[in-house]
Write a protein that binds this DNA or RNA. Structure first.
Lengths: 210, 210
DNA sequence: CAGTAACATGAGTGCGTACTCGATTTAGAA
DNA sequence: TTCTAAATCGAGTACGCACTCATGTTACTG
């Protein structure tokens, strides 16, 4: 969901004077088709398959996205932005004691359907292009972490780095054959227990400040 | 008009009458070179690079391993067998309270240097060929798990499935950029805490029976 | 309704890489 | 040593796939 804006004023100062109507429509169709195809087949799916699914010729795909990596990066950016929005909503409205664990669970559950993203997280070329959206998501998850810590649901010494490492690793693990609901529940249970305060019996008032 | 089959009436009943000396030597060199190359460059390294490193022609590689997947499977089998032996030694001689965690740590630490294996764990084609050695390793790790549980170092409800899932996921995670010693220590700390009994304060005698 | 530039099309090109095969060398038996 | 089948060699083939470009089509302007 990144339309550059209404085509109204041709007097834009940037290098994109005015995209034609069919061009905008095709760009959107290609992005949607690519998201589907790469989610199903992984990043090694061919550009031709994307073109076929979008109902356009191969040349049209390359007109909008000069290289395959550009296309992958565009999808990645899209998804990361949507996840960041979701995290933001949880941070402001969700239960701070379960927000992080809930988001963690949902993301892992969707990993299989979003094969591309998981793969791309370990690719340097695309990673660079999507660095900013990734940082935004990381910041949002960091907020969930802090909220959980403030409500004594998460151990104080946990840092965002290992949370992200556990998250991406588990998402990759979810792609493996034999990963079912029960295995996911048990695996996440171990990780979540590890993230909880060890001495949960010592009830202490939530720290209001630092 | 040369019918296929073993030459003449050689008395061997199996399909491999007698490998020549240079053939055996080259096979070993190719395996060693392939292990190196794939460990460094991952499974996408070219067969030519393997041949160059082994000091043989490309044709020789394909004589010993008809397809690239055959070569990858051979390496995989080799490594899995070595790991299984290591696990076996730990089970019979190591400290049962730390054996699993120690093996887990060592394997993750070596993941980056053994890029291939981690990749191959999520490949169906090769997976099938290496199913048996993988089962053996799984059984060995299961033994470490049981030992840890008997000495009250690991929670009773942990099963081999999630231990394997956590292990492979974390190995994959270790391949990512930015993974350093400190991050590894913190990430494993979370997982290990999650695997420990929650009420570790209640010291109870090790159950001798069930 | 032209006029035209932006856009779409899809057969074709280039390249990387797994895999082949006839020529050549070598190990091992007689 | 001599002989031959096994083994090596490496240029060549096949093929998939990212990417191009001459030609045809469509949307906007006046």
């Amino acid at each position: 969901m990144t339309p550059p804006g209404p085509p109204g004023g041709a007097g834009k100062a940037d290098g994109a004077p005015a995209p034609r109507a069919d061009a905008r429509r095709n760009r959107a169709r290609i992005l949607a088709a690519a998201a589907e195809v790469f989610a199903e087949r992984g990043a090694s799916a061919t550009t031709e398959e994307v073109a076929r699914r979008a109902g356009v010729a191969i040349g049209t795909v390359f007109r909008h996205f000069p290289t395959k990596d550009d296309l992958l990066a565009a999808i990645m950016k899209d998804l990361l932005e949507r996840l960041t929005a979701e995290v933001g909503a949880l941070a402001s409205a969700g239960d701070p004691r379960t927000a992080l664990f809930g988001f963690f669970t949902r993301l892992v559950a969707q990993a299989a359907a979003r094969k591309t993203v998981v793969e791309l997280l370990s690719r340097s070329g695309v990673e660079v292009q999507a660095a900013q959206p990734l940082q935004a998501l990381r910041a949002g998850i960091g907020e969930l972490l802090t909220l959980g810590q403030r409500s004594a649901a998460i151990r104080e010494d946990a840092r965002i780095d290992e949370v992200m490492a556990l998250l991406t690793s588990t998402c990759q693990g979810a792609l493996r054959a034999g990963w079912d609901d029960d295995l996911q529940r048990r695996t996440l249970a171990v990780i979540f227990d590890g993230l909880r305060p060890r001495a949960s019996l010592e009830v202490r008032p939530a720290n209001t400040g630092d």
